[in-house]
Write a protein that binds this DNA or RNA. Sequence first.
DNA 1: TTGAAAGCGGTACCAA
DNA 2: TTGGTACCGCTTTCAA
Lengths: 319, 319
Amino acid sequence: MTNQKQIAQKLGISIATVSNALTGKGRVSANVIEQVLAHAKQMAYVPDAAGRALKTGRTGIIGLVIPDITQPVFPDFAEGIEAAADEYGYGVLIGNSRRMKDNQAKTINQLIQRGVDGLIIVPQRGTKIQALNVPFAVISTATDPSFTVVANHKQGGQLSAKSMLDIGHRKFVILGDDCHSPVENERIAGMVEELENVASYEVFWAQDEFPDLLAQHKQGVTAVLTVSDLLALRVITESSNLGLRCPKDLSVLGFDNLPLATAVRPTLTSIVPNTAELSKRSIEYLDAAIRRNVQLPPPSIVNMSIEFRESTAALTAKI
Amino acid sequence: MTNQKQIAQKLGISIATVSNALTGKGRVSANVIEQVLAHAKQMAYVPDAAGRALKTGRTGIIGLVIPDITQPVFPDFAEGIEAAADEYGYGVLIGNSRRMKDNQAKTINQLIQRGVDGLIIVPQRGTKIQALNVPFAVISTATDPSFTVVANHKQGGQLSAKSMLDIGHRKFVILGDDCHSPVENERIAGMVEELENVASYEVFWAQDEFPDLLAQHKQGVTAVLTVSDLLALRVITESSNLGLRCPKDLSVLGFDNLPLATAVRPTLTSIVPNTAELSKRSIEYLDAAIRRNVQLPPPSIVNMSIEFRESTAALTAKI
DNA sequence: TTGAAAGCGGTACCAA
DNA sequence: TTGGTACCGCTTTCAA
């Protein structure tokens, strides 16, 4: 590995001048700068991260703490964070808590020991992040008071319901998976709020009881709002086994807009959390915190949008 | 941030002794060790990664280069690599090539600049990895001559076919998606090899022509072997629309054992690539290379297994 | 415009 | 058993 010293020797100049030439900081003659740059390139010089970090106190690396990367949505985060971090000049060290279950603290400490400049934390359900000695941003749910940036799950739920009301549906099944999930509860709260007094609905939790779709349909249900694409997929496949057609008999909405939403037939109409925006704001905040800017961006809430696809249809045909 | 110097001053001893006490390297009296450890803990001492890296030349971080983390299977890799790396004491810096398409070289360089000790590379289709100035391991397909570790796609294909032969099926549809994908071709080659001379089959590529399942079934086809869970899912939904039941009329096999395999009804029988083992071997190899062990593990091939679920059934009932 | 030198934090050699 | 010291590569201050 070439270092500045070698370049300096080769050119018969001092290390300081090489450093100045490379970083453009000090005043160096154009002539020398050119020479240094040329030699640096030719000798395949790559600045040593450790040396620089030691001197500057910054590694240019941030840690991303997530509960489980194999769970859908988290890869999207990883990608969004990585992309945003890259724009700000940071690398991303992943900290996947999975193996240590409740003990994400361990993951966090590991990351800190590795010298990260800051952390982006998507906390495990029901955990609190206490003060750390590095800057950090928390991506969480609205019910978590410590959040820095949150996805507006409730508004996503409202959007899900509203979009079906708009095209004529009036009788709904709302389907969650796990009744203890804050995320799912926020989504469903949004759906319920939107439907209240305007339409009829019934809420099911798949882990406890999967609804009898045929019976529901016979009672006039025409749309199923779910809290995840996987659940929507299950609704479609189950109802198909019962002889129900999607979207003719039943409109089905997913959530999260996973890759599979476009891979299955019918393709899934889905609520899309804006992970890119979520990531951007988190990094923005973290970068400001790391650079000790006084002006920290305030906690922010990112709304969701909807992607209409084949699994939903207007009710007009029925009239 | 506390450092060794501060601990040394507090205790009125030398930095060298503190270092020795902390690392357990030099000979230090039990008494002093105890004192140092106690103070280190109390003062919340965390060894500085940069300082250590500068001296030792190792950062303890490896880079993971993948084409696109949002694509199924890659999160599994990320998790497997992260877990294995953790066991060997490495952190994982992610390098997601996505944004730079064909230009994964850029990602690789970035990772190297950040001082990684080595790289795990899952190359983009059709790219060659040339020599780098850090150790690296390549996870690829068997047709890529530069591989370090590969998943045995062909054996996976054979397993897919064999498992259906074993339970009585004799007439098959084999379904790929993209006829230019090396992975898919290896999988299908395995299926074909297993069926050749023993059963009848026809190969389709969904991107070009999706088979007429009803017609196939009428001609006696009882099983569809696919190269991905997504494709299997599509077969099930499409055939369901045609009035065919899975697995009664048609057994359908997926590939990759994605989360969705258990989310749909019927749940998918699927070939499972052993990503944990792949990851373990890659890290093993890389660690040896980094430590300049002469004894590098040889390139290795990891076999797949099968997970039987609801989408496949024995043919006995038909007899 | 250039260079000498200090120092970031930790490790390891060698002397005491 | 303990401590002094050089050094890893880079940045930065200050003097030339």
